[in-house]
Simulated assay, not measured.
Amino acid sequence: MELNFNITENPSYLQVYEFEKYDHEGVRLWLKKNWSFIVYTSVVYVSLIKIGQKWMAERKPYELKKQLVVWNGFLTILSFAVFIRMLPELIVECAREGFYSSLCHFENHNVATSFWGVLFCFSKVLDFGDTLFLVLAKKPVIFLHWYHHVTVAVYCLYVADSSDPSSRWFAVMNSFVHTIMYAYYGLKAMNLKISRKISMLITSVQISQMIFGMYINFLTYFTKVKGVACDRPYWNIEVALMMYASYFMLFAHFFYRVYVSRSQQQKLKRI
């Protein structure tokens, strides 16, 4: 299913910079033809985790504090840029057309939002770099970590050519969470003492993101079932729903294991 929509380069609600005016149709067609590169990249990524862990088995962990500060600082800035450039379109869409329209239609789509949306998708490949630091530091790479990276990257680049209206919500939510998350990691790399409550809050926000993501997919699915027009193909909704549901379960389990179960164990030790 291909969507028909207009992308304006001069929206009344947002100043568009010259570097944001790109050949969106050309990029869309390229992604439609070449999206599978992310599948091969993901296979290599997962393979390198195992290879890297074996290579590091007999070696001392690397000290990468400075590199981590730079890396997380860069991703914080990038995530914040995506968030602040994509958010205005959502606000205007909701204000002018309503929340439902923001999920199902592109009534006020502009080239800047489209540009940062594409950049957001490609940035999911950059997120693979997080794992390199874990492997070189000989820290565990849990299933949630690499599964989340791989599935988000594959989904983003697969659906990018169809320009799913709800993807704006997914990108804005994710970039907001990543801004906070990478800022936190950067500060931790600087050896700043941060309350455990902050990390709990970040995980809670991530879980809230998954709940809202499931809500969006359920809402658009049943809207289409009722025969109301919605420019989201069923396969897209179903795949996104399965992803968000799996993330919710994994993040909720992580929260329980790290913050609830450990706290209970520590209390028992004090008795």
Rank of each mutant, 00 (worst) to 15 (best):
A171E: 10
S204V: 01
H145K: 03
V118S: 07
K139I: 02
H149A: 00
C156S: 13
H145D: 01
F122S: 08
H178K: 03
V118I: 12
L157M: 13
M190G: 09
F176E: 07
V172G: 02
H145Y: 02
L157N: 14
A95C: 06
P140A: 03
A137C: 12
V125T: 09
A189P: 07
V159Y: 12
D164N: 08
F218T: 11
V135H: 00
H145L: 02
K188D: 05
S162K: 13
A153H: 01
V150S: 06
F106R: 10
A95H: 10
S162F: 11
E97P: 02
V141P: 00
Y221V: 06
I142E: 12
G186M: 09
G98R: 02
V125S: 04
M200T: 12
K138L: 04
L132A: 08
T220P: 00
F122Q: 05
M200L: 11
S195R: 10
C156H: 02
W169N: 00
A137E: 12
R196E: 08
I91Q: 13
Y221N: 04
Y185D: 03
V141W: 00
S204P: 13
A153S: 10
W146L: 00
T151K: 09
Y182I: 06
Y184C: 15
S123P: 05
T220Y: 02
K197I: 08
P88V: 04
P140N: 03
H148M: 03
R168V: 01
M210Q: 07
L192T: 11
H105W: 09
F99S: 01
E107C: 10
K138C: 02
Y221E: 05
L157V: 06
I216V: 13
N110P: 07
L187W: 13
I180W: 06
I198G: 07
F212Y: 14
V92M: 08
F170P: 00
R168T: 08
V159K: 07
P165D: 04
L126S: 12
L136T: 06
Y147L: 03
I211Q: 07
P165R: 04
A95F: 05
H149S: 01
K224T: 04
Y184S: 15
Y221A: 07
S163I: 11
G227R: 07
M200C: 10
Y215T: 11
F120C: 01
I198M: 14
V150T: 15
L201P: 00
A183L: 15
I207C: 01
I194M: 14
L126V: 13
F120T: 05
Y184D: 14
H178S: 02
E97V: 04
M190V: 10
W116M: 03
H145P: 03
L187G: 12
G117N: 07
G227Q: 08
H178P: 04
L144S: 04
I180Q: 07
M210I: 09
V92G: 02
V177S: 08
T179W: 09
S208V: 11
F176I: 12
V205P: 00
S208N: 10
N174T: 00
Q209H: 04
F222E: 12
C104R: 01
K139R: 12
T151H: 10
K197W: 05
D164F: 05
M210V: 12
M173L: 12
A171R: 06
F222M: 07
C156Y: 05
F176D: 05
